[in-house]
Amino acid sequence: MVTIENLHKKFGKHQVLSGLNLTITEGGIFAVLGPNGSGKTTLIKSILGMVIPNKGNISVLGEDVKKNPDYRHKIDYLPQIANFPSNLKVKELIKMIKDLRKYTNEDERLIKLFKLEPFLDKKLGNLSGGTKQKVNLVLTFMFDSPLIILDEPTTGLDPISLIRLKDLIQTEKAKGKTILITSHIMGFVEEVSDEIVFLLEGKIYFKGTISKLKTQTNQPDFEHAIASILTDNHA
């Protein structure tokens, strides 16, 4: 699905990714974890072609990301901070994104699911953070793409919406899609993900299932396992 070879990225003097190799197979939910500034968002943005790597190759579904932007038709991306043009109404934004990508009526179902009907005619600048995130989710999930990338999807969501999001992720997974998630909420990660990818100092430190991580670090629960990696490496 996604193959990354020897990825290097530097921002100024700061080396964020240094020789990262990662293969993500088709189907399942992968969580990308790591301490702040470990390069999670940089990794995701490199896959999307928003960050241009200094070195290395990335291919998505067999297509080299540098060559043609069309591979992004196969990716649904949820950006970290949902800040949309404040002059636009929710309805117009959804229409615009559909116009830019392709037609779908999936948005109606998602709008109902997240109870966004009363906000459709409001301007995006006047929405609360949580509501913006819901709009963000509608925009992401309305296209039926084989690869879904979610950067901090839980930000600002209330408990009911969070449950709906989890359901949504599971239904998408059941369709055989590949889902990449970054999150700092360990409970959420433990609940939804099949496999985790742990980034540390610009490289993959660990890749595998959560139970494998627990045995490897000798910790009874997931949160402590993650914490032990961090203390072992920064002590």
Binding site: G49, R72, P79, R101
Partner: peptide
């Protein structure tokens, strides 16, 4: 002002 909007567009299948 349209930085976020640009980022939204960059993730779409559009040429830079």
């Amino acid at each position: 002002n349209s930085k976020e909007f640009t980022e939204l567009l960059l993730a779409q299948p559009l040429k830079r």
